[in-house]
């Protein structure tokens, strides 16, 4: 049971790390938002599921937190992207 939880934790932290890496290494704002949102959302959800395997009695709280994350993260990233776009920050076009 706890082994499954550990696997979830590990994959979650990998996604979180990739998200952080993408935030630094991606070439423009929009790509960074992409990395920051998608990878981090998935990473957090996986970590929370890992917690479920350690403490099954907390499923209610965990479900609520996951729902909240799923609801708010895309909204905030879309608001950010929209703000950048309206302020005239151009999209990265160079393709190496």
């Amino acid at each position: 049971m706890q082994l499954i939880g550990d696997i979830f934790f590990l994959s979650g932290t990998i996604f979180l790390f990739l998200g952080a890496l993408g935030l630094i290494r991606m070439p423009d704002v929009y790509n960074r938002i992409q990395a920051g949102t998608k990878a981090v959302t998935l990473g957090s959800i996986l970590t929370l599921m890992g917690i479920f395997f350690y403490f099954p009695q907390w499923w209610g709280h965990l479900c609520l937190i996951i729902l909240f994350l799923l609801f708010t993260n895309p909204v905030s990233s879309s608001a950010l992207a929209r703000a950048f776009y309206r302020n005239g920050i151009s999209v990265w076009t160079k393709t190496k």
Binding site: F71, T72, V75, A79, R82
Partner: peptide, 15 residues
């Protein structure tokens, strides 16, 4: 100033 757009407006109402 520009409006925030449909997504944020809806989310704000719910949240």
């Amino acid at each position: 100033s520009p409006t925030a757009g449909f997504i944020v407006a809806t989310a704000a109402k719910v949240l």
